[in-house]
Amino acid sequence: MWIGFCWVLILFARSSNGIYNGVEAKFDFWTFIASVWVNGYQECGGTVIDTRIILTAAQCVKNKPVKKITVRVGTPDIYRGGNVIKVTAMAVHENYKEWNNDIALLWLEKPVLSERVTNIPLPFKEPSENEYPSNAGWGEKLLESYVSPRKLQNGVTKIRPRSLCVDELVEPIGNELLCTFYAENDICPGDYGGPLILANKVVGIAVQGHGCGYAILPSLYTNVFHYLTWIEENSRELKKNN
C-alpha cells in the first residue's frame, strides 16, 4: 500500500502543465506522434497515419505556405533527435471554420516509417461515453505563457456526452466533435493537432482546450471516425498528385 502511495507521489512530482496535469511520456508508446513546425516555431502536434501522411488540425496550417511547414518525428524532444522533414503538399478541409471540420493532412517530402517512427490505425467506430483515451503533446505549460515543455507530455481524459459541451461552452456540438473532460486534464496551445488515442487507434484530433486546466470546462477534439471518408479520399489525392 505504501509502495503504491509512493508511486503516486512520484507521478505527480514529475507532472507538467504541457498536457495540463500530464506526465513525461514514455516515447515507446508514442512513436506515431509528430511535432508540426511553421515558420521555424513548434506550432502543433500531429499523427503519422501513413508512410508520408500526417494527420493534424486545419487551424495549424490553413493559409500557411507549404514551404514554411516542417515535421519532426521519431523523438520525444522537440529540439533534438529524430528527423525533420519538409512538407510538400497538404489537404485542408474545404469547410473548415473555427472548431468545425478542423482537420488537415500533410504530405511529407519522403517516407518516415522506421524503428522509431510508426503509423497508427484509424478507428472503426467513435469512442463511447465514459471511455478513457490518452492525449499527448508539447503544448504551453501555462495559458499564454508561450513556454512549451521540451519533452513530450501525456495524460488521460474522459469522453463525455456532447450535451455537456453544449451546456458548458454554449456552442453547438455535432457528431464532428468529441467532448472530453477529466480531473483537470486539458489541452493547451501547442497541443492542438495532436492525437487522442484509444485502443491503439487515433480517435481524435485536439482542437480546443479551455484555460489550460484552470477553467473547469471540457475540451474538444475532431472526431476522426466522422471524417474517415474525407481522410481516405484526400490521402488518395495526395498520393496521386505527389
Rank of each mutant, 00 (worst) to 15 (best):
F12W: 15
V73F: 02
T56D: 00
G22S: 11
I53L: 12
E140Q: 13
K62S: 07
N95M: 06
N135F: 14
W138K: 10
V23Q: 14
A104P: 00
R14V: 08
G139F: 07
Y41F: 13
W107H: 10
V23E: 13
E129R: 13
P123Y: 14
M90H: 05
F124D: 14
L122F: 02
V36K: 06
E129L: 10
D102M: 06
V73G: 04
G46N: 06
S15G: 11
K67C: 02
L122D: 05
K64R: 15
I33F: 10
E131F: 04
W30N: 04
T70F: 11
L106I: 10
T47M: 05
K97L: 04
P65V: 11
L122A: 10
T70M: 11
F27H: 06
P127D: 13
N21E: 15
G137Y: 10
E24R: 11
A136M: 10
W30S: 04
K67V: 08
E115Q: 07
G22R: 08
I33G: 01
N83P: 00
F124W: 09
A58R: 01
G22H: 07
R116Y: 02
A25H: 08
K97E: 01
K141F: 10
I85D: 03
W107P: 00
E94P: 00
N21H: 12
E43I: 08
D77Q: 14
A91V: 03
P127F: 12
N21Y: 08
V117P: 00
G137E: 06
G74W: 04
N17F: 09
E115D: 14
V92R: 02
P133K: 14
A136G: 15
I120S: 03
P65S: 12
Q42D: 03
A58T: 02
D50H: 15
A34D: 02
D50N: 10
I85F: 04
I53M: 05
E24T: 13
A89I: 04
P121Q: 15
T56E: 00
G40V: 11
F12G: 00
C44A: 15
G137I: 09
W99C: 05
E140G: 01
N135R: 13
L113Q: 05
Y96F: 14
E129D: 08
W37D: 02
L143H: 12
F32C: 04
E94N: 09
F32R: 06
P121L: 13
N130F: 15
S16I: 02
E131N: 03
T118W: 04
I85Q: 07
G74A: 07
K64Q: 14
D77F: 15
A136R: 10
E24I: 13
E140I: 01
Y41I: 07
S114C: 04
Y41C: 01
P111V: 12
L108I: 11
V8G: 01
L105H: 05
E24M: 09
P133H: 14
F12N: 03
P76Y: 13
A57P: 00
I19T: 14
G45E: 06
